[in-house]
């Protein structure tokens, strides 16, 4: 598209963001401030993720954008089209074909490879924000690795509900040092971050923070010795592809109580159905 630099942002801004990314990769889980720009989409729609993607995108990259696991929702479609127009890069919905995946609220079910980069959109980068209102104090707590307060929150959950009732944005320890918000992905997805071969980058546009988990880095959910972290998944198979290992969305089908559970990762679901169809035709 004429009149715009490659991938919308000017080169100086990309350079600044890349420097922040390098620093973030060097200190896994540490939040690096950066000068977030105004982007042509509202805060909360992925302004942080879109800037990180713009800074790392090259001409040969293949971009996939998902929102709640789906490739076909408004947010995903708009951001994908935005980069198709401003950078002219190839886009895909296939997890295996993508080199850069920007995501909101999910990690793809298909395991990622070392040649892929996963970019998260982050609304609230500070995991301690809800417990400690002072940002100066939370910074000091990160510096001194004083994370007892986060366990107070887990304690409260067990005392009140009998189990740790955090279903998304589950606090994790990165590389045994920094407490990190994994962005609002379901707790179901946090184990996928542990020693993931792909580079994971996190961008928070409104809060102006970038952080990262380098490949093959330890990411551990917080828990108690006698109340270990447990995966929570709806006890159903996917109504479309029959998967029993994927994260499910509950979809209401009518106003008489009808509902179905389907994979939240649309690409995973579709490729499973393609394989099943191909096997059915061959038989």
């Amino acid at each position: 598209m004429s009149g715009y630099n490659f991938a919308y942002l000017d080169e100086q801004t990309k350079r600044m963001i890349r420097r922040a990314i390098l620093k973030a990769v060097a200190i896994p889980g540490h939040q690096v401030p950066f000068g977030a720009r105004e982007m042509p989409l509202p805060y909360g729609w992925g302004t942080g993720g879109i800037q990180v993607t713009a800074a790392i995108l090259g001409q040969d990259d293949v971009l996939k954008v998902i929102d709640q696991g789906a490739d076909d929702t408004t947010n995903a479609v708009s951001i994908r089209r935005f980069f198709a127009r401003t950078a002219g890069v190839a886009t895909t919905t296939r997890t295996t074909k993508a080199t850069v995946i920007q995501t909101r609220h999910r990690i793809p079910e298909t395991p990622l490879r070392a040649d892929q980069i996963l970019v998260y959109q982050v609304p609230l980068p500070e995991p301690l924000a809800k417990l400690e209102p002072s940002r100066a104090e939370t910074r000091q707590m990160h510096a001194l690795a004083e994370y007892g307060l986060m366990h107070v929150k887990l304690y409260e959950d067990i005392a009140r509900f009998g189990h740790i009732a955090i279903s998304y944005d589950y606090p994790v320890m990165v590389n045994g040092r920094y407490l990190m918000s994994p962005s609002p992905i379901p707790a179901f997805d946090t184990p996928k971050m542990h020693r993931m071969p792909a580079l994971q980058l996190f961008g928070a546009g409104r809060e102006k923070r970038i952080y990262a988990v380098p490949p093959f880095t330890s990411v551990r959910p917080l828990d108690f010795d006698d109340h270990p972290f447990r995966l929570i998944r709806a006890p159903h198979p996917c109504a479309l592809c029959g998967a029993r290992d994927s994260y499910l969305d509950e979809v209401l089908t009518d106003d008489r109580g009808g509902r179905m559970f389907v994979c939240s990762d649309t690409d995973y679901c579709a490729s499973r159905r393609d394989i099943a169809e191909a096997a059915g035709e061959a038989a």
């Binding site: 004083e146 007892g148 307060l149 366990h151 107070v152 304690y155 409260e156 067990i158 005392a159 108690f224 010795d225 006698d226 109340h227």
Partner: peptide, 15 residues
């Protein structure tokens, strides 16, 4: 939770 906070700050991890 208020009483336990100091324990957790010292590294107690057994509910």
């Amino acid at each position: 939770g208020n009483v336990g906070e100091r324990l957790m700050a010292q590294g107690a991890r057994h509910y």
